[in-house]
Structure formats: C-alpha cells, structure tokens
Design a protein around this nucleic acid. Structure first.
Lengths: 259, 259
DNA sequence: TGTGACGCTTGATCTGGATCAATGCAGGTT
DNA sequence: AACCTGCATTGATCCAGATCAAGCGTCACA
C-alpha cells in the first residue's frame, strides 16, 4: 500500500539539491541506466568495476524510482532484490511490536541495500525523499559475486565499513549525552554529504524529520528539538530550511568524543 | 603491563567448564594445532574448509594462550594478526577519552577477531578468562582469501551475522528499558552457549563481571545488580556461582521484544 | 480565505536510572 | 589470624531526559 506523491520536491538545502533530486536523465527508465553517466558509481558498490564490466551490470539492473514515504523493503519481506541508491534519502528502521522504533541508519546516494547477501531483510527501508535506485535481482548479484571475487571483496569492504559505523553508533547510543548525540550526528551527516558532493560545506541538509533523528539517537522528539534550539541560541548553529548550518566547528568537534 | 595469572581457572558454571577451559592438548604448543581435533572448527571461520585444506590453515596458524586480563589487541594497534578463539571469553571494548567505556560484544569460542580484514582495529580485546586462540598473520589470511573465494564468502557471512547482531544491539541500547536489556542479554548468552556446547541449559555462565555487563547494555553497575537481584526476588532466576539459572523462560521471552 | 493535518517548538511536571555513599564478602598475601 | 583488594550489593538522593500538554507555522486543498 504505497502512497505516491511524485509532485513533492526533496527537502534539502540549496547546495545539495542537485544530489538528492532524482537524476532527470534516468528517473523513469525501466532498464538499467548508462553506467558511464552514473553520478554515484565512484561511491558505491560499482566503484570496483572496470569499464568493460559496466555492460554486465547494466544488463542485470533496472532503474526504479520511489516516492516520499514509499516502503522499499519491509523487515518481514524475503530479500528478492538489492538496491543501490542513486538519488534521495531513506531510513533503515526496526519496529518493535508495541510501536517503539529504532532507526538503524540513513541510506544516502551511493549506499547499497543488501550488503549481507542474505535471504531475509532485518530492517525496513522507507523513502524520506523521492528516490532513484538501481535495482538488482538477488540471484543475479549472487551469481556475479561467485564469478567476480573482486566484486565480493568490494561487498565485504562495504559491509565492514557498515559494521564500523554500527559500532560507532553503539558507543553513541550507550554512552553519550543528548547534546553529544546531536553534535556527533550533525558532524556525521556533514561528513557523509561531503563525501557525496565532494566539498565541505557548513550547511548540513537534514531531509529526515525530528522524529527520525530521535529514533536514530535513542532520544525523544522533544529532546532533539530542545537541544538543537539550545545550540542555535548559543550561536553554535543556525536552523535553515531543511537543515542546519554549523557556525562553530570547534564546539562540535570538542563535543564529539570519538572523533 | 599484563598481569599473568595462569593458576586461576575460568569462571563458568559447571556444565560449561570443559568448553571454556583451555584445551589441555594444545594450550602450550607454538605451532598451529591439529585441526582434526579442534573443538570449535564447526562453529568458526574454518567450518567452510574441506579436510584437505586443513594443512594449509595449520601451516599459517599458531596457538597462542592468554591469561585473564591480558589485552589481545588494542584499539590503537595496527592489525598484524587475526585470532580465532578456541577457548575462553573476551570483551570487545571501546574507550572514550574521559574514561567512559562501551563494550561492543563478548567473544566466545568459535568467534573470529578480524572479520573486517582491515588494517586497523576499531576496538580493544581483553581476556575475561584464560584463553586459547589460533593466531594468523594478517597477510597470510589476505592471501588465503584471494586464493579461496569460498573462504572469503565465509568471512563475509560471519561479518554479516556480526552486523545483524550489532543492529539488534542498537535496538536494545536505543529503545529498551533496563529490565528488557538484562532479560534480552541473558537470553542472548544462553543462545550463544547453547550453540557452542550443543544443548540448551537453563544455566547461563556469565564469566564477565557486572561492570562489563553494564558497559555492554548502556547501564550502570548498580542498575545491573539491582535488576538481576529483583529478578531473583521475583523467582524469575537464581544467581549461581559464575552465572545465573533461568527459572521462568516465559517471563524472559515475553520481556524480550525483538525475539 | 478558511481549515485541517502535520511537524516543530516550548513549558510544566514526572521518573527511571544515575550518582553518591556505605557495607558485605570471598580470595589472596603477609 | 589480620589485612588488603576487588567485586557485588543495597540504600538515599538527584537529575537528564521522558512524558504530558499546549501552542504555532506552513502547506495542501476546499
């Protein structure tokens, strides 16, 4: 039951809009896109492929768009397809029976859903903005991984990086204060956007809502709102449409114990 | 500055002692052990190897024992060796500059340290009991992984399982109450011991101290102690030397929202 | 130009778990 | 036996962040 809302534009601050907005060239194709023009190839799973292997990937991929609020995969689903995100932002989320939620992370352009290669998803993925994805049948990727060890190695590298992030996040959830959690989160988002668009800006797009941030950091929506507004009153940041602007980098780096 | 205490026996309840105690046949050899008698081979990274490949592994492995409180690896170290745990229990831990700690997990027999294949450790590993390990030079494993794709696939499977556990733990840290955290932890430990010794017992060995449990669950030592003792007063469990005995499985399963 | 829904903010109050402070207890050492 | 050291337990008190409860602004649509 997917609610489709194609008219709404992604919520991002101006200097990132061209990244998050679905790539106009490919958003409505059915067959896989032209890898030669893929904007996220150097970031994602395909970075390890040689140009002569692009045709192989193109043949087993389809471009699939999603609207805001669509569910890409549900934690109860079997895993029939994997996704490489080419535009837009999604949340990876686990639901408890009583309605509590934990957001495991946010999937940004270049991220791959299905790194574990397993047959079952262990989380739901929900589009926060309109999205464009490269979709692969699971069996095709399993076959590719069998044939090309360097592709498997790339999957393993990315899964290892994911495990590292998960461990960073365990420290955050288990041992940081609300202020430290928010500060660490904002630095993390700045770092991840910088990797995507290649330049460091003090503007940090936050396409996810306050509730998603709260469920990511193990806080309530009220504490997230209060803490960000306190930081604004203290002139450490400015709240801008669809994000924030860091005004005091030293404050945030001092706040983040792990970095 | 490692305090060596070879005389002390592992702290486990009786029906698990033979698993955690260093294997007398091999504890003091320098060269790698005989894979044919390895008790954890079916559990660990080596489960995927055919008998004719055991010789390869034996040639690149050494048996290395550690005493209680030894540091196997430090989070600041470069990663020169990997370890497969054949006996004993260790904690995987991150330290914050101000002394706060987060225990990322506990390594039990069959677990492999170095799944990410990366050049740097992202956590310290400290022996909780006397341990026996199979040690491998990093370059030898990297070479093996290059030559034997099914070995890399096994590494990837185990890393994926680890990522899944990490995500379970994020839910626990971010959204469960103290009582739910303790209950989930006890069930997790029972499940892991059952996998090692092959039968389900209501006795759950807890070789780690209360402080380690607290740092694993994002609680304080006082809350851990209080909660476990409340459970005992409510007849849900009995505290026994070096562990606990579950008396009311239904209570614990009802308490653990994810399972 | 209303109006209703939704997301965010802000204030008042409450409370689960942290902090502070003893005490107990088992093992190891002299 | 006396002493020490490192856990674990238990009680008293505190407080960061949760909960409860309004408001506010924006936007889609009537």
């Amino acid at each position: 039951m997917l609610k489709v809302n194609e008219t709404k534009t992604p919520q991002t601050v101006a200097d990132h809009a061209q990244i998050v907005r679905p790539h106009p060239h490919c958003a409505h194709h059915i067959k896989g896109d032209d890898c030669r023009v893929c904007q996220v190839r150097p970031l994602g799973i395909c970075a390890v492929l040689e140009p002569d292997e692009w045709a192989t990937i193109e043949q087993i991929s389809q471009t699939v768009p999603f609207a805001e609020r669509d569910t890409l995969v549900s934690e109860t689903d079997d895993c029939t397809h994997f996704y490489s995100i080419t535009a837009g932002v999604a949340r990876l989320i686990r639901h408890l029976p009583d309605g509590r939620r934990q957001v495991m992370g946010f999937a940004l352009p270049g991220d791959f859903l299905g790194l574990s290669l397993g047959k079952a998803w262990s989380f739901s993925v929900e589009a926060i903005t309109p999205m464009t994805t490269c979709r692969f049948a699971r069996h095709a990727i399993v076959q590719l991984v069998d044939q090309k060890p360097h592709f498997l190695m790339r999957m393993h590298e990315m899964a290892s990086a994911e495990l590292n992030l998960a461990q960073d996040h365990m420290v955050l959830l288990g041992r940081l204060t609300a202020e430290e959690k928010i500060g660490t989160f904002l630095l993390e988002m700045r770092r991840r956007w910088a990797r995507i668009d290649g330049h460091t800006s003090q503007n940090v797009p936050l396409p996810m809502g306050r509730q998603d941030i709260a469920d990511y950091l193990g806080l309530t929506i009220e504490t997230v709102s209060r803490t960000i507004n306190q930081m604004q009153r203290a002139r450490h940041l400015v709240i801008v449409p669809d994000g924030i602007r860091l005004m005091d980098a030293a404050y945030f780096e001092h706040l983040s114990p792990s970095v």
